[in-house]
Structures are given as structure tokens and as C-alpha cells.
Design a protein around this nucleic acid. Structure first.
Length: 470
RNA sequence: GGCGGCGUAGCCAAGUGGCUAAGGCAGAGGACUGCAAAUCCUUUAUUCCCCGGUUCGAAUCCGGGCGCCGCCUCCA
């Protein structure tokens, strides 16, 4: 089945047709590494990770590129604040980025290009724009001349006039148009710089993404993603730069996620109303944060609240319990071959799940619907699981769930509890069994309480007592 | 001023012309259990922000309101 994507460029869903059959090239605007990222930033990282995983689920060979902006004003300021080099700032927060992203179950990209490692490509690209007359030099700065580019504003759905009329920036009179943007910035005292045909300086923000995406993915490439606040000016400018330079289409599909709100307002660093992912990871289970991001469609805003996260944690718990129950049942001595009507109906649920999951995801990554398909499955399967399930059936269902999970990534969660003394736990459980046999409930409950304090929860099943870590 | 999005149960959220308006959380009642945990069963929107219109038929299309949010500046 075909995948349909909502393309910001045309404001409608379009069938996804890759540039090169069986392959997908994706570029995601990554972080400017001057700080920890917050959960608002985490939204695109998580949803685009899921898109990538879904393409892989469908058998595509995905090249996933995510950049690090490691030189810009904010990094320079941060370096001054901390009294270290810009390089050190970047290194520190890149390391932090990986720690947090890994904890959120975000797969590693194929490449993580950094601006400072692509100065040569950037300078070359600017040179091409100069040669073609799309750029001009003022006092060692190089600006892009938006008036020269036909179709500027197409991605944002506005004309140059419309964009200008609402401009809130003070006008730099040296620029031909207020919308012109810096490709190269002349160095100032105490800033990192590189040599260029226009003097010492550093790249502007937009040019790095053009240079690096084209380097790793070619032109045109399939998918470029980012938050909706990047549509203008960042992505608009990327298009202008890249298409002016190459004379070809830059990107086929532009995907943008809606914001994460807190108290009905956009979470952003400048507003100061943010919760770092790092902090959130301490408060909530990592997979709950993931599931939370997938509980709404990526193009709808989601409101962050503690209450919501807690409710998602409950949902997640139920999913994980269910999965655990299947595994547990499979480890028991139960019948293998399906026989009854229930066996065969339940067996079919595996395919139903896969079909419903895929058709939801094919439709512009409808993750809420895809997750609902998982819940419907476990709901319908509940009675079967507690009746007389057969191994073959459970194995097939387990496989289907795991398959879906390669995309959602919400089941497996490394237990964060420290090493537990399994011998001791099992000894206590036997002791409790003994007490229960003698109807010595007080002792039994006391042991159970003791284990709970160790983070171990007991469940008495018809096959005996089992335990798990909370 | 220009451009865009949203308003579905206590909360979250699918559904965009037609079977009984998905799914989750929370709540209530019950089963199982020594009590729990886990699980299971039952239950929770005659109605989709409001008012008109189109239609045999609208949460879904059209017009008009009301409320909320975002972009046009660094921002995921």
C-alpha cells in the first residue's frame, strides 16, 4: 500500500514516490547545541524517528540525516557565559543530546553532520550563488537577494510583499530587502572564524542545511522535516539557496510537526516555559514520553501536562503488562496447536493488527489511530489470554506486537533498578508460599510488603507466584 | 494587517457526507483473590462550540458568529 504524506509545499496529502525506488532520504533539522533540549524539541525528534522506523518497517532503505548546528550566536554567547570555547560548548551539548535521545529510544541517524565540519561545502555553495548573481557582499557579509529568486514565499504560502508587510524586524539599511538573509557573516572580535573569498567569517544559519543535506542526500531528495516554526524563514531560505544554486528542485516532501504547548502556550526556550527532556526523563517513564508524543497526530498541537503524562503512563503500563502476560504464558506448559474456534479467531487478530496499523500509518502517519489498533487488539485478546490459549497463537500475536513495536518502540524498557538479588527475592517468595500454605496471612503480607519496598511486585497466578520489577 | 491551525464524553484523542460517533486514561458496579496484584465482565457523548443553510441524510459541505493557538524575529 502506498504511503500518503501531507506536504507543506502543496498543503495536501500526496502519495509518496521516492526519488530512487526502495530508498528514502530524510533530513531533519537537528538541534543548535548550546543547551539541553526540552520536550517541545523532543517532539520532532520522536515523531520523525517513528516515520523513519515506519519506512524501514515497510522495507525501505532509509538514509536519515540530522545536523548539529555547532556555530552560531547562541553558542558564542553561551561560550562567553561559561568561559569556554564554542567547540567545548558544542561538544558538551552534543554529548548531552545523545544521552537524552538514546533514553527516549530515538534511533541513531545515519549521519550527524556538523556545520563546522562542512565549511568548505558551505563556502562553495555561497560562491555558486555569488557567481549566479543571487548574492551580494556588504562589508564582508554575504546576503542572499530574495528578489532574484522566483517563488520566494511558496512554502510559507505568502508573497514577498505579504511577508514584508508584517515584518517585525528593524530594517538593516545595508540590505536590499528586509527579507534578505545572511549567507556568510563577517567575523567580530572574539568569534570563531574561517577564511573565505569574502574575508574571515562564519556561515549563516540557513546555508549549512542546504550544503549538508545536498551533500549527503543529493538533489532532489525525498523528505525534509522540522518543526512548523522552521517553515519561515529557515526552510523557505533553504529552498531559495538550494534551488537557485542547482537550478533543480530541492526537496520533494516537506513535513512539519505542530508544537507542543504548555499551559496553552508554545513551549520555547525564549519564553522560558520549558521542561528539559532530561528533567522529564527523571519524572516520567521514557516510553511514556514517547507514547505521549504519538497519542496525537503530529500535525496537531499537543498540550503538555503532568496529569496527561501520568495517564499515558497508565496506558503504557497496560500495554506492557499485556505483553508481559503473553511472554509469561508462553513460558508455561500449555497446549501448542490451535484447535478451538477461539484459537482461530485470536490467530486472525495478528493480521488484523498489522493491517490496521499499516493503514493508519500509511495515511500521513496517523499514530493515534495506529496506537488505537494496538489497544483494540489487546482488548479483544484479553479474554482469550485468560482462558485456554495455545502457544502457536500466542507466538503469532507476540510476533505481530513486536513487529509493530519496531516502529512505536514503546515495549522494551531497560529496567532502571539497580542489581537485584534474585536469589534473595526467590527465597522470600518461597517463604511467603510456606506462610500462605499455613494461612499465616500476616507473615505472607509482611513479606510481600518487604519485597514491594525493594521494588518487586508479586502476582499470584494459577501457575504460582510470579514477580516483576516496578 | 497578511497567512495558517484548532474547538468531539471529566481528561486525552480518531473519525471529514450514510451501518450502533474508534481507542486510551480516570470514575462506578461486579467477577477472580485469604487480602492484593494482574486479568476479565458491565457501565460512562440521542450527540460532535453556537446560529443559519445545502442535502433524502452532516460531527463531516457552505455562510455567519464565539473562543483558543501559532507564523510573519532566534525558535522543534
Amino acid at each position: 500500500m502506498a504511503i500518503y504524506l501531507f506536504n507543506t509545499l502543496n498543503r495536501r496529502k500526496e502519495e509518496f514516490i521516492p526519488v530512487s525506488s526502495g530508498k528514502v532520504g530524510m533530513y531533519v533539522c537537528g538541534p543548535t547545541v548550546y543547551n539541553y533540549f526540552h520536550i517541545g524539541n523532543a517532539r520532532p525528534f520522536i515523531v520523525f524517528d517513528v516515520f523513519r522506523r515506519y519506512f524501514e518497517f515497510k522495507g525501505f532503505d532509509v538514509t536519515y540525516v540530522e545536523n548539529f548546528t555547532d556555530v552560531d550566536d547562541k553558542i558564542i554567547n553561551r561560550a562567553r557565559e561559561l568561559g569556554v570555547s564554542t567547540n567545548e560548548v558544542a561538544e558538551r551539548y552534543i554529548k548531552a543530546y545523545f544521552e537524552d535521545a538514546d533514553a527516549l529510544g530515538i534511533k541513531r541517524a545515519s549521519v550527524y553532520p556538523r556545520a563546522t565540519e562542512h565549511i568548505g561545502e558551505i563556502v562553495n555553495l555561497i560562491q555558486v550563488l555569488m557567481d549566479k548573481g543571487f548574492a551580494y557582499v556588504v562589508d564582508g557579509d554575504v546576503y542572499y537577494d530574495v528578489m532574484k529568486f522566483d517563488g520566494y514565499g511558496r512554502l510559507s504560502g505568502q508573497s514577498i510583499e505579504q511577508l514584508q508587510s508584517g515584518a517585525r524586524i528593524e530594517v538593516d539599511t545595508r540590505k536590499k530587502s528586509p527579507l534578505d538573509f545572511a549567507l556568510w557573516k563577517a567575523t567580530k572580535e572574539g568569534e570563531p572564524f574561517w577564511d573565505s573569498p569574502w574575508g574571515r567569517g562564519r556561515p549563516g544559519w540557513h546555508i549549512e542545511c542546504s550544503a549538508m543535506s545536498m551533500k549527503y542526500l543529493g538533489v532532489p531528495f525525498d523528505i525534509h522535516c522540522g518543526g512548523s516554526d522552521l517553515i519561515f524563514p529557515h526552510h523557505e531560505n533553504e529552498i531559495a539557496q538550494s534551488e537557485a544554486a542547482t537550478g533543480r528542485k530541492f526537496v520533494n516532501y516537506w513535513l512539519h510537526n505542530a508544537y507542543l504547548l504548555i499551559d496553552q502556550e508554545k513551549m520555547s526556550k525564549s519564553l522560558g516555559n520549558f521542561l528539559t527532556a532530561r528533567e522529564a526523563l527523571k519524572r516520567y517513564r521514557p516510553m511514556a514520553i514517547r507514547l505521549f508524543m504519538l497519542s496525537a497526530h503530529y500535525r496537531s498541537p499537543i498540550n503538555f501536562s503532568d496529569e496527561l503524562l501520568r495517564s499515558v503512563e497508565s496506558s503504557l503500563q497496560r500495554l506492557q503488562n499485556f505483553f508481559y502476560n503473553i511472554e509469561d504464558m508462553l513460558s508455561r506448559d500449555i497446549m501448542v496447536e490451535p484447535r478451538s474456534k477461539e484459537d482461530f479467531t485470536s490467530l486472525e487478530l495478528a493480521d488484523t493488527l498489522l493491517n490496521e496499523f499499516s493503514s493508519a500509518m500509511d495515511d500521513d502517519f496517523n499514530t493515534p489511530k495506529a496506537v488505537a489498533a494496538v489497544f483494540s487488539t489487546i482488548r479483544e485478546l484479553g479474554p482469550y489470554l485468560s482462558s485456554n490459549p495455545k502457544k502457536t497463537v500466542l507466538q503469532k500475536l507476540r510476533e505481530a506486537l513486536l513487529s509493530v513495536n519496531t516502529v512505536l518502540g514503546i515495549f522494551e524498557e531497560k529496567s532502571k533498578s539497580k542489581d537485584l538479588d534474585v536469589q534473595e527475592i526467590e527465597r522470600l517468595i518461597r517463604e511467603r508460599e510456606e506462610a500462605r500454605k499455613n494461612k499465616n496471612w500476616e507473615v505472607a503480607d509482611e513479606i510481600r510488603e518487604r519485597l514491594r519496598e525493594m521494588g518487586v511486585v508479586l502476582e499470584d497466578t494459577k501457575f504460582g507466584t510470579r514477580w516483576k520489577v516496578v
